[in-house]
């Protein structure tokens, strides 16, 4: 299975260069108050996302799954390696963005940057796990092109969904209940909230992997 992950890395060496250039721009562009806090998370998620999609794009372009599944490899490994690769790509993103951030600080470049921390790491990993869990079953079922389209819709929903929901609640729900809920969440210790979110994402990932395995097991090439 590690060989398959390695394959997904080796076929896209160019992505590393793109990740590096992207990170440099990232810090320059998102240095304002609003985005500053989220810059490591945004960078890592974007890099992982690009690398997942790029490796699948190559598989699709050359129909290389025919080769992969002709090698002494189980289909189960092919599926699980894609999930593992997503985690590895998160690590790549963290290292690249983290390093660029550190270099900016150490070199004394006048940008408001802080060092990467555990919170960034956990948040980015959870977000990519969430995206990958939604994306991979669609990818294995519908193939690269269609899954990308569906994924785009999901991505936008994830981005604009929460704010639309908040707007809806503000307009329609009575203000008291919403405030109560907010207070309730504030009282909840942040480590407990973090752990529950992480547990939920992990559960989702396992369910997603099981669905993907089921789909891929009966796929015809």
């Amino acid at each position: 299975m590690l060989n398959l992950v390695l394959k997904d890395i080796l076929i896209q060496k160019k992505s590393f260069l793109i990740a590096l250039i992207y990170s440099v721009f990232l810090f320059a562009i998102f240095s304002n108050e609003v985005f500053r806090e989220a810059v490591y998370i945004m960078g890592t998620v974007a890099i992982a996302y690009i690398m997942v999609v790029t490796s699948n794009a190559y598989d699709d372009k050359y129909k290389s799954e025919i080769i992969v599944n002709s090698l002494p490899v189980k289909r189960k490994s092919v599926v699980l390696s894609k999930y593992l690769a997503a985690a590895v790509f998160v690590a790549v993103g963290l290292i690249v963005v983290g390093t660029v951030g550190a270099v900016i600080i150490i070199a004394g470049i006048p940008l408001p940057v802080r060092y990467i921390n555990l919170y960034d790491t956990v948040f980015a990993l959870s977000l990519v796990a969430l995206l990958a869990s939604l994306y991979y079953p669609l990818y294995f079922r519908f193939g690269y092109a269609l899954s990308r389209m569906i994924n785009m819709v999901l991505f936008l929903a994830l981005f604009f969904g929460p704010s639309a929901l908040v707007g809806y609640v503000r307009q329609n729900a009575d203000y008291g209940t919403a405030q109560q809920l907010a207070v309730c969440l504030q009282d909840f210790p942040s480590w407990a909230l973090g752990t529950s979110v992480l547990a939920a994402v992990m559960l989702l990932t396992v369910v997603s992997a099981l669905i993907s395995l089921k789909i891929y097991e009966t796929k015809d090439f």
């Binding site: 050359y62 129909k63 025919i66 002709s70």
Partner: peptide
């Protein structure tokens, strides 16, 4: 599969490599 060698009508390899 360890003991099979395969050749298909199209290459299906990652051609950027």
């Amino acid at each position: 599969k360890e003991r099979i060698g395969f050749v298909y009508d199209e290459s299906h390899y990652y051609e950027e490599l």
